[in-house]
């Protein structure tokens, strides 16, 4: 498969389209942002530490794990475990950003590497969905990333300010927004029967991993297992097609 460059479109338009596409998921980002801000306060982070962590680390699941490890007294702060936990929880991003390769012309990846800072689960999924329809661009990715960044940072601060007065997002069903969006996007990616096996392998590997290991390992394990299954299936098909031709 050769990757043709997407049709040229003004990048401002693409940026806004990316932001618009991320509105549904930004709602669940905002709900969890409130909770994180509230928990950060009870974990003993100062306001400036909240702003630094959300602004620079900008990774929800890693930040939730960090709150478990955080201590209010600097002398006992487990710096090594905090950094290691961020690395482990974020390992899945290796898979996510790898799939964004077609957006960047070869040779311009230096700039592309820096823009990966704004990649989250949310704008990644919207961008790969747009790519599957022949669209998607760096500006589209950045539009969603900026929206996610603003919703995360602002709701963290609101949650921090409100303290413990806010509700659990689960009470309003908002915890399901993430699953529902990703389920709908998965259905939108359906291309044919060739997807059945890789998706089943991914789902089963993820379910088994989630039952035995805490954290986000199931995403990494399921993602690798399913995509490898798909690749093996594809190259086998190509090989048999070639035998038939020759």
């Amino acid at each position: 498969m050769s990757h043709t460059t997407p049709p040229p479109q003004p990048s401002m338009e693409q940026f806004l389209a990316g932001a618009r596409a991320c509105i549904p998921v930004a709602i669940s980002v905002a709900a969890y942002g409130m909770v994180w801000g509230m928990l950060a306060r009870s974990a003993g982070l100062s306001l400036i530490e909240v702003m630094m962590m959300s602004g620079l680390v900008f990774a929800g699941s890693a930040q939730f794990v960090a709150l478990d490890l955080w201590t209010a007294t600097p002398a006992t702060l487990p710096i090594g475990p905090l950094v290691l936990a961020a690395l482990i929880v974020n390992l899945r991003y290796l898979l996510l950003t790898a799939t964004l390769r077609p957006l960047y012309p070869p040779g311009k990846l230096g700039r592309g590497a820096l823009s990966m800072y704004l990649v989250t689960d949310e704008n990644w999924v919207m961008t790969v969905a747009a790519m599957a329809r022949g669209g998607g661009s760096v500006a589209f990715l950045m539009g969603g990333g900026v929206l996610a960044w603003i919703s995360w940072m602002s709701t963290n601060l609101i949650g921090y300010g409100l303290g413990s007065t806010i509700d659990d997002p689960a009470r309003w069903g908002l915890d399901f927004a993430f699953t529902a969006t990703f389920l709908a996007l998965l259905l939108g990616m359906w291309k044919g029967r060739g997807d059945i096996l890789p998706w089943l392998v991914a789902a089963l590997a993820a379910i088994l991993t989630a039952q035995h290991v805490d954290g986000s390992w199931h995403i990494l394990v399921g993602g690798i297992a399913g995509s490898l299954a798909g690749a093996i299936l594809d190259t086998r098909k190509e090989a048999t097609a070639r035998v038939h031709v020759s």
């Binding site: 991914a202 399921g222 995509s227 299954a229």
Partner: peptide
């Protein structure tokens, strides 16, 4: 195949 597999996972 990564996007579909990651979403399924």
């Amino acid at each position: 195949h990564i996007p579909g597999a990651v979403l399924a996972a």
